[in-house]
């Protein structure tokens, strides 16, 4: 039976700025079920990191929650105290940040950091160090015992990412949130890490919310995909539906732009012409209208996110053909 673990319900979040409120997230809704791997893709700056910092309430001071709920195991996280949130982070929910330096304290050795995050476990320090060394081995870092004595800057970019992943896995969370955790990993290691994450899902029933721009990794790892554009969800569906039967023009264009599809050297790579709308000055109607090559009169109104088939939703008037006719 599927059981909802995380439920994002009509979430809207603004950033207060000198130019007015920047509407970073607008009416975001989607679920993550227990043991499920959900990918989030979308344009740079569309609000992916804002979304996960909102879930964990690790937010910039100018963040304002405007509407909606974030339910984890049925409880609304927005009503929880800061102390309760702290207990949740690194317990039931783990996070791998986009910037690994957000995880690592630059003046503390990696070994001490990895021992410290085991503060809930009642074992000796030596045992904690052994666990830490074993986890470094799991993510492919050689000479783990010697490495534990080093500081973050003494590791390569990809090593820091892998250590952040190792640390997130140590608490065996129910939900792992990973924000572009493999950007600095070569293809062979990336595949190994994907396999580790799949093991984790299988062995502990851990659900994963996985943000990535690498469509190949999304295709390989995820069960379902949420596509975001300029602060809104424009489509969501199973990984097959999203890659083989996309129902929003943005999704379609995004997949077409992936150089992974283009096997011979191209002098000019495909892009989506035009600019992302200014979130402090939202245009009327469909958010993608100005860049959409299929835009029509109807797009002056915001299309609702509509269910097209079981589990496949899209926000585009093109899917309402019968109403147009």
């Amino acid at each position: 039976m599927t059981e909802t673990l995380l439920e994002i319900d009509n979430l809207s979040v603004d950033y207060e700025t000198a130019r007015g409120d920047l509407k970073a997230l607008r009416d975001i809704s989607f679920d993550v079920n227990r043991g499920e791997i959900v990918g989030i893709v979308g344009e740079s700056g569309c609000g992916k990191s804002t979304l996960i910092s909102a879930i964990l309430r690790l937010i910039a001071p100018n963040t304002r929650f405007r509407n909606g709920a974030i339910r984890f195991k049925g409880d609304d996280l927005l009503t929880r105290t800061e102390e309760q949130m702290r207990a949740l982070r690194g317990g039931d929910i783990s996070i791998v940040f986009q910037d690994p330096m957000q995880t690592h304290n630059p003046v503390i050795t990696i070994g001490k950091q990895m021992v410290d995050i085991q503060h809930r476990v009642k074992i000796s320090k030596a045992e904690k160090l052994a666990t830490a060394a074993r986890m470094l081995g799991v993510v492919g870092i050689p000479d783990p015992e010697a490495r534990l004595k080093q500081y973050p800057h003494e590791f390569s970019g990809g090593m820091r990412q892998r250590i952040a992943i190792a640390m997130a896995l140590m608490s065996e969370p129910d939900l792992l949130i990973a924000d572009e955790p493999t950007t600095a990993l070569d293809a062979t290691l990336e595949v190994q890490i994907i396999e580790r994450l799949k093991d984790l899902q299988r062995d502990f029933g851990c659900a994963i919310l996985f943000i990535s721009h690498h469509l190949g990794v999304i295709a390989e790892l995820c069960d379902r995909v949420v596509v975001m554009y300029a602060g809104a969800v424009v489509e969501s569906g199973t990984v097959r539906e999203i890659f083989h039967n996309p129902k929003h023009p943005y999704t379609r264009r995004l997949i077409e732009c992936d150089p992974g599809h283009i096997k011979t050297r191209a002098r000019v790579l495909p892009t989506i012409p035009g600019e992302v709308p200014d979130l402090a000055n939202l245009p009327e109607g469909c958010i993608f209208r100005e860049r959409c090559d299929q835009a029509m009169a109807r797009c002056a109104q915001v299309p609702p996110l509509t269910r097209l088939s079981e589990g496949h939703n899209a926000a585009c008037w093109l899917n309402h053909a019968e109403e147009i006719a």
Binding site: G137, G140, A187, V191, I194, R240
Partner: peptide, 26 residues
């Protein structure tokens, strides 16, 4: 390395050549 490149297609069949063991010690 080349064979490991993830393909943007959930149904892609990849002939990966497994890399044995761990990165070696410096």
């Amino acid at each position: 390395l080349l064979s490991a490149n993830p393909e943007p297609d959930p149904d892609a069949r990849l002939d990966r050549i497994a890399l044995k063991g761990e990165p070696p010690s410096l």
